[in-house]
Amino acid sequence: MRTLFTAALLLAAGTAAAAPTYPVLATQSSLSFVATQQGEKFTGVIRDFDARVSYAPEDLAHSGLEATMRLKSIDTKSPDRDQAIGTADWFDVARYPTATFRTVAMRMTPTGPVADADLTIKGRTKRIAFPFAWKATAGGATLDARVALDRLDFGLGGGEWADESMVAHRVEVVVHLTLAAPVAAAPAKPAAH
């Protein structure tokens, strides 16, 4: 719903060009990360997020990905760990409730599209390369990505927690978005005030 609304606004503002915007089907999409604690991998699912996807391979200039993640919704299948993860040493959700992802440029490489994006977690922004796989489907498309990050780049578990034997520095972010057919690219009527 929110996605549709955002898309409508953008269309109304005239910023959207040929790259169509795809509504994200929340129930068939997931945003998660895989981290390693004491040699054991665990998955944290970010249940509450919004994403906006505009993509056309022939119009990368107007393609873009955006996401806002509400970190209180992280679920690692361990209430103790979920609670620990929200504290000041880690995501500090009280002060930084959301993380954001916003592409600044999109390029095509021999292995597929890559978004150069600003990822902001815990108030720290880092430019990352975000390669993804795009597949057109009958009803829309799917977007899949798997990107490795260093948690220390975002101040996640610094100080004493920097010890890798407890929690590894490398964290993989796994994205799977199921997208419905794009919103009609017809000129939208002016937004109602």
Partner: peptide, 13 residues
């Protein structure tokens, strides 16, 4: 049941 990892002296999980 708590969902904690289990590792024997940093060697085997």
């Amino acid at each position: 049941a708590a969902g904690f990892p289990l590792q024997w002296f940093h060697l085997v999980n």
